[in-house]
Design a protein around this nucleic acid. Sequence first.
DNA 1: CTGTTAGCGCTTTCAA
DNA 2: TTGAAAGCGCTAACAG
Lengths: 335, 335
Amino acid sequence: MSTIKDIARLARVSTATVSYVLNGTRPVGAERHQRVMAAIAELQYRPNAVAQSLRRKQTRTIGLVIPDNSNPFFAEVAKGVEDAGYEAGVSVILCNSDSNFDRELRYMEVLRDKRVDGVIFIATTAKADHVRGLTAAGVPLVTFYRQLPDVDVDTLVVDNLGGGYQATRHLIELGHTALACVAPASTASPSSLRVKGFRQAMAEAGLPVDEALIYHGDNRFSGGRDAAEHLLQTGKPITAIFAGNDVMAIGVMRTLQAQGRRVPADISVIGFDGISLGAYVTPALTSVMQPRYEAGQTAFRLLLERMRDGYAGPQRTITLETRLEVRDSTAPPAR
Amino acid sequence: MSTIKDIARLARVSTATVSYVLNGTRPVGAERHQRVMAAIAELQYRPNAVAQSLRRKQTRTIGLVIPDNSNPFFAEVAKGVEDAGYEAGVSVILCNSDSNFDRELRYMEVLRDKRVDGVIFIATTAKADHVRGLTAAGVPLVTFYRQLPDVDVDTLVVDNLGGGYQATRHLIELGHTALACVAPASTASPSSLRVKGFRQAMAEAGLPVDEALIYHGDNRFSGGRDAAEHLLQTGKPITAIFAGNDVMAIGVMRTLQAQGRRVPADISVIGFDGISLGAYVTPALTSVMQPRYEAGQTAFRLLLERMRDGYAGPQRTITLETRLEVRDSTAPPAR
DNA sequence: CTGTTAGCGCTTTCAA
DNA sequence: TTGAAAGCGCTAACAG
């Protein structure tokens, strides 16, 4: 691979001149300019970005730390980040944390070592220790999905409370009064806010919340299955179920169907996330959509403002709105 | 951020000594070793990987060029690559080509500029021009999914022909004789090999292939929809359909159901890919699974052998076997 | 066992 | 308008 020296020699100019024509950072005489361009073409020269990074103290690379890129939700976010990065000429290093604190930590180290210009971080836990090393080193960081306590970083969140409210409101407007809710037990998590939105909508409609119909399941298919079984066993006349995420909602639907209940004729089901899978199941799942791709793009934009435009103002929090996507799994209750 | 010089000064040793304790590349006296370690801890020193890369001519970073990381298939491959990379201490730069040749080209340039140690490439087209720059520069490259013509690179493919055979064989063994097949028209693509496998199984079973029942649809949901409509219109007594990929298979199923046909009671449907979505649709889709995660891991391993172990032998081609996953969308024909 | 020093490939100041 | 040269942070050959 040829270097700037090779070009300089071939074009009979100094390396400085080559650099200047390369970057257009100082006028260069037409003659020499020609010769340099010719040499570059002849040797198929491409500047060494590693050397540039060392000199400029800028890598045009960011890190994206997410739990799992094969989860459709995060995949979409990652795509938003990558797309925006491509536009801006910034590469992104993909880091799956596997929801593992040590791995998050390790990646933070790697990213710091590699001197990335910034990091987008979807935290698994609400701990912020691993982020300190980066922020202390002055690396801009924006978090998404979950807020980090006591750290001065930009944060992007989805309006989970509003989304939970929206979902519940939809069911209530259809005429349902016997509602159940399925979500992980954790507190201060995105899911808990969704439940809070559920309660808020119920209260507002003057509907009592039967605590026996709030089931705590993990955010997976099996959690939905268990929830449906449990709810059916209570024997209570439920006509609609709000699941804290789509995968659980699908678990709920499938189990309901397996038990002979029709969705939505007997029981309506609504999810949260808007994963594309939801459009293909039968019946197609009504859900509260999270703007995942946009979230990725916005996160990148936030980061870029700090990286490039040198924004160094106070920490910012941006809330993204959800959108109700009505499909076939919700309908008015049978009467 | 502190540098090796700061450490050297604080520990009252030379920078060389610091480097040697850092890399354990030459014995260092206990006393000095101590002092260096202390200084590192005190200043929270972390070596600058950019400088190391420049010096060592090695970035411990690879590029992963895929059409779209939000496609579940590629997402899984990407995960395999990232996971294996993490184990080996290699970072991966995520590059979505969007199935766009220019974007592929641009990324190849970026990766070359960044001096990545290798590239894993899932090509969109069968053109190999953009790869030339990299291989000419001596960057190891392994391709997956699609073979690249006239380039001396390692290739990983899935046994599409065998998979198509496997799927068809499954239907035949269930007792079906009136089979239809849905796949893109392209030749020399993975899909065309699946069709070839279909034909092979049919021939072997002494079953004639009705060319009117080979439908060419694009690899999307809508392609499946169109296919089902078309096949139904022929009025022929089809009892089973082999779709070249799962998304199409789901389109086929949904359309069949919308037209009042039961799957699998009236018509069996089998797909190809094994996307997780298939497990959640109703009925759960029988499919030929491609080892996606393993493919990612294997691709990385192949690359690592060239990167690290300096394997410089001839181009290798590795074929990954498919696996039949029988679920609920296939059954013996009604009689 | 340890230190000095020449680069890796580039950018940019300083001097012409 | 141009070139010489210092230096980004590190490694490793060379010389003690």
